[in-house]
Structures are given as C-alpha cells and as structure tokens.
Amino acid sequence: MPVQPSDCPIRDFRFAGIDFESAGASRGRTDVPVQIGLAWWSCSEGHQAPFVSFLASDAPITWSARKVHGITDEDVVGAPRLLELWPTVKRYLGQSVVVAHGKGTEKRFLRAFPGHGFGPWVDTLLLARSAWPELKDHSLSAICDSRGLSDRIAGMIEDKTWHDALFDTVASLVVLEDIVQEFGLSDLPLSHLTHPDTSRWHRLRHG
C-alpha cells in the first residue's frame, strides 16, 4: 500500500507505528535504543503484523531506564544492532505514514539510517492534545486509560505492559484509530492528522 498524495482521504493510507526504548542518558554518553516495536494499522485492514526486537548496545542500560522499561543488559545480549534491522524497518516504514507518540525520540534514533526518507509523520501526542485538550495528562497510558482503551491493548499484546516497545507502538495506533473514528476523520485529508490544531490546548495550559 504506497503512500498516497497528502490530499487523499485518511482511509486510503497505511499507518506504521514505531516505538523505541533506550539505554538511558548519562553524562558524556549519547542515549541509544535497546528495543524497537513496529506494527501497521489502516482503516480497511485494521491492526496487523506486530514486530518487536531487543537491540544490541555497547552502552550499559542505566538504572533509571531499567526502572522504567525493565530491560536489562542480559536481555540485549545477542540481539541484532539497529542497522542490521534495516530491511525490516524499511518494510514497515517505507510507503507508510509513520506514527509515534512524541515523535522526537523515534526520529532521532532513525537517523542511524541516513537519508531514509520515512514519513510523513503523525504524532499521537499532538493529536491527543488537539482532540482532548482538557485532559491534564496526555501521556500514552493516561490517554488510553481515559478513553477505555488500555484493556483492549493488553488483550492485543499479551504479557506486555507500558514501556515495552511493542505495547507502546500498538497503543499509539489504537489511539490514532480511536481519534479517526471518534471525530469521523476517515474521509478527510491526511493533513488533519499531520498538522493538528493544538491552539486550544496551549490556551488552557497557559491561560
């Protein structure tokens, strides 16, 4: 399913979710990914092809990062490096609209593939702020709890929880699906997702 022109309706696109978990930042050291999750969703085909892998890292996982995601140095022993997963990453993200919750980390780690050209991007953090600006917390778990989506995600990704890369990837796609359905966006242009209006959220936050 190739990426359509941006004025095509949302229902014509395939969306590829991505999430990274990292080793954690420390003084004098650049943060690196230690787990990647990928999955697809589209209006016509639903949720498909969940993929998750630990990633080898030369940097030890910090205590603070382990406390968040529970990944240990032992978990990543023998795992592929991110660059080794280029064929998989390209298969998921190429010809798809890329989705992440707070896309900065994902875009940063994907710089490992110079000139990859992935995109356009949909940030479900910005979408949620536009859709429900009155919420006090727009973290992925808080949004899913407030929308009654968390149990559904847990049923889709068994034996996983928040801050597992695949769990968070699927959660971001479920949030996207929820927004498209709640606001009847499927026949509208993709720009409604790539450039959401967050002005009301900003007014509430700074008012």
Score class of each variant (00 low, 15 high):
144 C>E: 14
198 T>R: 06
164 D>K: 01
136 K>Q: 10
99 V>H: 10
61 I>W: 01
98 V>Y: 02
181 Q>F: 11
9 P>C: 09
40 W>D: 04
150 S>C: 07
66 R>Q: 15
151 D>C: 05
122 V>Y: 08
127 L>S: 01
156 M>F: 02
21 E>Q: 13
154 A>I: 00
110 L>K: 15
63 W>C: 04
88 T>G: 09
45 E>N: 12
57 S>T: 15
56 A>F: 03
73 D>S: 07
158 E>K: 06
2 P>I: 10
102 G>H: 10
51 F>H: 08
83 L>K: 13
196 P>V: 04
9 P>W: 02
134 E>L: 14
204 L>G: 11
88 T>C: 09
160 K>Q: 11
48 Q>F: 00
6 S>E: 10
69 H>V: 06
116 H>A: 13
38 L>H: 11
109 F>S: 05
100 A>V: 00
78 G>M: 04
188 L>A: 15
4 Q>W: 11
158 E>H: 05
159 D>T: 10
137 D>W: 09
37 G>F: 04
162 W>A: 08
202 H>Q: 03
79 A>E: 14
1 M>A: 13
117 G>I: 09
40 W>K: 06
55 L>Y: 06
166 L>Y: 02
28 G>E: 13
200 R>T: 12
76 V>L: 06
73 D>E: 07
118 F>T: 14
70 G>Y: 07
54 F>R: 06
206 H>K: 10
113 F>W: 13
198 T>P: 00
130 S>W: 03
182 E>R: 08
69 H>T: 13
84 E>T: 07
45 E>G: 05
180 V>K: 00
93 L>G: 14
67 K>W: 06
33 P>R: 03
148 G>H: 08
84 E>Y: 11
36 I>E: 05
206 H>C: 15
137 D>K: 04
121 W>L: 00
173 L>N: 08
19 D>M: 08
77 V>N: 15
77 V>L: 15
175 V>N: 01
155 G>N: 10
51 F>G: 09
149 L>D: 10
57 S>N: 14
173 L>K: 09
198 T>Y: 07
169 T>H: 00
173 L>T: 06
150 S>L: 07
